[in-house]
Design a protein around this nucleic acid. Sequence first.
RNA 1: UCCCCGUUAGCUCAGUCGGUAGAGCAGGUGGCUGUUAACCACCUUGUCCGUGGUUCGAGUCCGCGACGGGGAGCCA
Length: 461
Amino acid sequence: MGACVRIRHVLAGEGLGAEIEVKGWVRTSRVGKGVAFLAVNDGSCFASLQVVAEQGMASYDAVCAIGTGAAVAVRGRLAESPASGQRYELHATAVEIVGPADEEYPLQKKRHTFEYLRTIAHLRPRSNTFGAVFRLRSSLAQAVHRFFAERGFLWVHTPIITTNDCEGAGEMFRVTTLDPSRPPLVGGQVDFSADFFGAQAGLTVSGQLEGELFAQAFTDIYTFGPTFRAENSNTPRHAAEFWMIEPEMAFADLMADAALAEEFFRYLCRHVLENCREDLEFFNGQIDTGLIARIEAVADTSFAMMEYGEAIERLKKASVSFEFPVSWGLDLQTEHERYLTEQVVGGPVFVVNYPKEIKAFYMRQNDDGKTVAAMDLLVPKVGEIIGGSQREERYDFLEARMRETGIAPESLWWYLDTRRWGSTPHAGFGLGFERLIMYLTGMENIRDVIPFPRTPRHAEF
RNA sequence: UCCCCGUUAGCUCAGUCGGUAGAGCAGGUGGCUGUUAACCACCUUGUCCGUGGUUCGAGUCCGCGACGGGGAGCCA
């Protein structure tokens, strides 16, 4: 008897002709006269292994009664399959039912809606679609780390709990150990100085500010971790808990930032094309026809670049009518972004140098006095997927901008300090990991690319 | 948070003009078969989301509520 082999290797023909053992979960069973077929999946790949059990085997009657969802351990000889549909199959000599499953198992061998599967998130990873999603998610996360590691970027674990209440990037979840029914009061207000951290604390909405501090020591760094927003957003693109990737480079300007974003995005496209092919074929066939062609196009083209001002002019000349107005000084809506990338450019495009009024306080002011060194990467079908900027490294400019936008400089004294000593031109960008997964799988709801999604009124499992 | 749409069998859905509910799949029984979401025959399964109203009569029309989805805003 050989050691237990993962089905991915079995289906590659490893152990052909030999006695092997596999362990996994039964996807379907078909019982005939004198012969039974089990499709067994262990999550190591999309395809299941066909197990053939013949009458005369010790536990044949029990095998015939195995229901969808049962866990089994199968010993047998791996052989080439005489029938079409699979190249190899396992001729069982012994089948052990490790964990049975009865007819109430909710995952039937038929199509379910994603809405229903969300209500059984504890079981949905055993389905075809979610198996593919979470294999790709894992592989992509490792590719993100590999990309940065190959280029000498330091991975910094920025804090999840923070007392920065002025990052300006959305509502924060509060972190407290105070008794909610009897908080200590001072002048009618909650006295957070008596709280665990001695100040109002919350879950991070971005690791960027801390990332910048580390870039001023390690040159090139990135963050990759969970991020939280307490916004009451009920859309297919928003979650209360999601993962974000934020590289930051010292001694770098906006063009270096865009160059990194392009290299990074194309690297990840190539990664899934080369390493997640079987799952990608499934998405291309069942979820989003045209997916592979779109990813291949992005992986092969170099990205265009356009000034914000030019983008506005192109939109004004557009023959199509937009729902939202187009005017210099207004932010671009998704419909505008998609027009630019799909109709004007016909591929990925960076839009750079936005009006300072519509961008964050930390972005570097350009010499024209009107714009900041911001960039958004727009891609077909979704619009913006990466947003970044060169940061304001000049102390006086940064402090003035903070005051203009209502942020107390003393509350971010440590951030300003990096501009006092050894300040450098630096730049970075942010990418929502789930939005990347959605782009690379064709899945249209963020709740279906997160194992156990957190959204308003939902934190089950 | 706002605007639309939806909620019917375990699952996916149909249900006409207001007259007490059907199909496929799943499950059960039998048959057949190296099968591929197997197939064939028969059988079982309902708080029609909740609540109030209109009506002789409501799954169907109206009000309110809950939940889900899509769009918008916010953004990643």
